[in-house]
Design a protein around this nucleic acid. Sequence first.
DNA 1: TAAGGGAACGATCCCGGGATCGTTCCCAGA
DNA 2: TCTGGGAACGATCCCGGGATCGTTCCCTTA
Lengths: 337, 337
Amino acid sequence: MGMNPTVKDIAAKLNLSTSTVSRALTDHPDVKKETKRLVLKLARELDYQPNPIALSLKKNRTYILGVIIPETSISFFSKAISGIQEVASKAGYQVMICSSHDSVDIERQNVQTLLNSRVDGLIISVSRETQDVNHLARILDKRLPTVFFDRICEELQSTQVVADNFAITFRATEHLITTGRKRIAYIAGPQNLYNSRKRLEGYKAALQKYKLPIDDDLIIASHYEGENVKTYTDYLFNLNRQIDAIFAINDRTAIEMIHLIKQRQVKVPEDIAVVGFNNERFSAFFDPPLSSIDHPAFEMGKTATELLLQHIADDQFPIQKKVIKSDLIIRESSFKS
Amino acid sequence: MGMNPTVKDIAAKLNLSTSTVSRALTDHPDVKKETKRLVLKLARELDYQPNPIALSLKKNRTYILGVIIPETSISFFSKAISGIQEVASKAGYQVMICSSHDSVDIERQNVQTLLNSRVDGLIISVSRETQDVNHLARILDKRLPTVFFDRICEELQSTQVVADNFAITFRATEHLITTGRKRIAYIAGPQNLYNSRKRLEGYKAALQKYKLPIDDDLIIASHYEGENVKTYTDYLFNLNRQIDAIFAINDRTAIEMIHLIKQRQVKVPEDIAVVGFNNERFSAFFDPPLSSIDHPAFEMGKTATELLLQHIADDQFPIQKKVIKSDLIIRESSFKS
DNA sequence: TAAGGGAACGATCCCGGGATCGTTCCCAGA
DNA sequence: TCTGGGAACGATCCCGGGATCGTTCCCTTA
């Protein structure tokens, strides 16, 4: 059978006590060299591996990090997961991932599940629905090391890793304005999300800097899914406001919009400039190549994990708020030289 | 502090023994109703949760499934992970994911890590480099329930979940042929992968059925990354073979190729029809909309997990080989009515 | 020669639960 | 009055390791 060998097995075969075997395996000085040799040899033969569960029970540490995100298959989060895993595995930690599917109820369950699993720390990006944060406050009450990233809760006193949402949206809007655009539609994300709020603020601030009016009709409170992209597009055209640019909350929306715009015989970027968000890999090959904001998903995952590990290693590690810089990538969809 | 309460804590506060508390919590008949009430009440107040590590140690089960895949951020695998997690969490299992980054060495480490973690079962999609399968055979030797999916090892006697690679590639090639294409280039994946082999066979079989020559010059043994897409494209054009169709191993390659083809003032689909693989969400909005094969990632993850759970529940559960049907989605990049 | 001391090992306990013993105590029946 | 039996609970052991005790020896030194 595939039973894993234990110190007891080794001890029995060598007529030793488990204590001696255990000491030999940890290279304790109280064991004769010859005995150590015998033990190590047999351990190798049996492919002995100490049972991590027994160690967890004893040390009250699992070497598992919990991760709660809205959806594993969203590209931003899957990249963040890569970053998390890279740092975690190098430090000898495993990662346990739960998706909330953007539901607070499931998020609550996830919290419970991971607390039960006795993870050593948590990395969280909250669901779109999350308003009440009691279940998250409970984690902090338990003093479980926790880092929020990307979709954070401003009201919680905890370490956070965010992108420079305001600055980058400001910059992208400024890019559109300085290349001659005046009526820039903005497809916003849900406004209960920190990210979406900051980004919208950046957009508005840029308009104000250049003394352009803020027209609420041009701001669409989208949801991330994009099922309604056609509705938004129709709405914007029916406004008859001579829109000359669109800033969309993500590349998928931007690309679907360009598709719909082209169907109306309107040209991108000549008539309407388009900027997306996330810089998906395919965006560079779109027609026209899509200008987009490179959201540093992998980097954020890495940073969040590094901070979490420091929290785990040191109780007194101070709460931090790290900002990871995004990058504006200008392609032909917004500017043709 | 955030210490988790134990039966011992409850027992102390109620002047009971841990045995009685334990029995009360598991609703054992040997406990007075009143005592049960007191215990359950206090357990609720303290937010008591049985320590899963202690249970794991005792029952020799972790309720964790291990997953080894090449890369979490590849869309196919991230969707598969969604499917795995959905089935697993419904059955009360957690999932532990390791990426091999398409390296055998890391894959070997992953196997070791997950075996050490004492997972209850494994779901594996092998790395691109995997030729020697000793590390995988070891798992089967240990009789650890294991399911391979998508990228399987034919030589291993184990349950497998695969797509109908041969059939769907045959069908897509047939689609190109029956719409008038005669010189169809094929961008293949690495031929040590089961998938890539089967797909290439499907392509060749379709050509044979319609008595078209199999021209090895038109078959490119690509790697998945796509950094060399430009090289491939240049190569195909320099062949001067009047290629009229391209079947690419994935949508990203297909889209980049279309981009490069259009730069040469060649029209898609009029001059060259293009079909991709994976049906990424953005592919429908590309210009022209990309024909692609819908690879059932989520479904495969689900099925693999269901089979794994059955293996875990029943030692004698017979080895199975399940085929999940793909779908050919015809859009304008391959056929314009 | 007896005491001291270190080398090398065994025995025990702990982590947190469940399972299986064993122990009270009370009450019914002979 | 003695016994049997069940109700209700406590004590112990186990899972697999590490840590801390305790125990042999044997050898050195006063």
